[in-house]
Design a protein around this nucleic acid. Structure first.
Lengths: 241, 241
DNA sequence: CGTAGCATTGATTCTCTTCAAGAGGTGTGG
DNA sequence: CCACACCTCTTGAAGAGAATCAATGCTACG
């Protein structure tokens, strides 16, 4: 898309800064934060940013690419807790903790900004707006989790898939991208795991939606044809119960 | 148990302060916090502490009793996001937000300490340890949600129920109560909703566990007979997949 | 061009839900 | 104190939905 540019070392120069931080942040605050941000680092597909048990904890803002976060159980089971796109922040569950409880893995070539939690904590002592923003993104994460609990607890397979697609679409809108052209950076297995379904069930749900003419599926690329009808299916499921 | 005492207005005098705040908090910090805490207020069964859309937001520390938090959907569906016992804090999902996204309802006669979020935010600017503690309880909440997602996504009905019972037992231990004598302050319907199961399925799971001699069920009172065998069933389910 | 990994589709099985009835317990009023 | 109604919980039988098992098709990459 855009021509290659050397990595910005200042948040102000980053096209994503309005996503990472609210518009109310003034230049001064952003500069202070910039001093904390480590040089953006690149991760290859399947590379882990941090893993369960790591002691060095930091927040990471996604700059490009995509990644998943997951909790690993002793038995080796994996539960994918979220997928993260440019402008989103991972590692919130490490704030105030000494060790990582989850693992973050790049789904494709991904670049990140690293914000050490210690530095962020100290800086937010001086910048009330930063502290407020941290509280806000953490509580927002909590709220999203609650919504997803409801999905996992009550929704049918189709509704789970549709909700995911619409959620992705909404996040693309925030990044000023097309809302009807989705690219799933994760495989079907990861998606199924995240939604609490079997891989085959996800595939069937997508095929069904395609048969009904609501979406077009071509591997990892999905085109939303009738967003409204998709939304109706989610709502219909709610009303029926 | 203990003789009646007038409600403590200082956190220091509250027997629960070691649960609400880490032991590292010194007397000075606790006194500062105490000044923020509104007089403990009592709520009757089924009374709401705050509801979806309320603008006045605060954190609440449970002093006695029990309550549930839930998200309500436009369609009227309810998803219970958590049950909270003495020494635990609710309203974390309102930090940094202007309106409540969830509803908190007392399950029985319940007393709470109210901590206005504005005051808490301002105070945590001056007390780094308070800010750190807030970050910690929020991230701990996130971590617990991730565990519960895994439960909802992958676990069988029996494992969900067993996990809930063992979790309750562990929380009682933190309060220095017996770990094998549980009292479910919520009804079967609320429990089922929270675990993403049908009411009948929860009832059947409890009956099955009782038949197997692992627990004794008497209405809302549950006695854990073989905690280890219960834990094994959770582990067994993990290994099988 | 062939292989390996990923995705789709089909058939079967199983768990949980749903519908339905009955038991237990509690609170109120006679 | 008992009787009745109400509510919650338990139990049973039938059915739906998703998981699993299994095979085929597709795509990408060496």
């Amino acid at each position: 898309m855009t021509a290659f540019r050397p990595a910005a070392t200042r948040c102000l120069d980053c096209g994503l800064h309005k996503l990472c931080f609210p518009p109310s942040f003034d230049e001064h605050a952003l500069n202070r934060i910039s001093q904390l941000v480590a040089q953006p680092s690149a991760f290859a597909k399947n590379e882990t940013v941090y893993r369960l048990g790591d002691s060095m904890t930091a927040l990471y803002a996604v700059r490009s690419g995509a990644l998943k976060t997951s909790v690993l159980l002793p038995s080796g089971e994996e539960q994918i807790t979220g997928f993260y796109l440019p402008g989103e922040v991972i590692g919130l569950d490490n704030m105030g903790q000494s060790h990582c409880a989850s693992t973050a893995t790049a789904l494709e070539k991904t670049t990140l900004c690293e914000l050490p939690v210690n530095g962020i904590s100290q800086l937010s002592q001086q910048l009330p707006e930063l502290q407020g923003h941290l509280f806000q993104i953490m509580s927002t994460e909590l709220r999203q989790d609650y919504q997803r609990m409801h999905l996992m607890a009550q929704a049918s397979a189709e509704v789970r898939v549709v909700s995911f697609l619409l959620g992705l679409s909404a996040r693309q809108q925030q990044r000023h991208l097309a809302t009807n052209e989705l690219r799933l950076s994760m495989g079907r297995a990861d998606l199924a795991n995240h939604l609490g379904l079997a891989l085959e069930t996800v595939s069937r749900a997508l095929s069904q939606l395609a048969d009904d003419g609501l979406i077009e599926v071509s591997g990892k690329n999905i085109r939303i044809i009738h967003a409204e009808q998709l939304a109706e299916r989610v709502a219909a499921d709610c009303h029926s119960s």
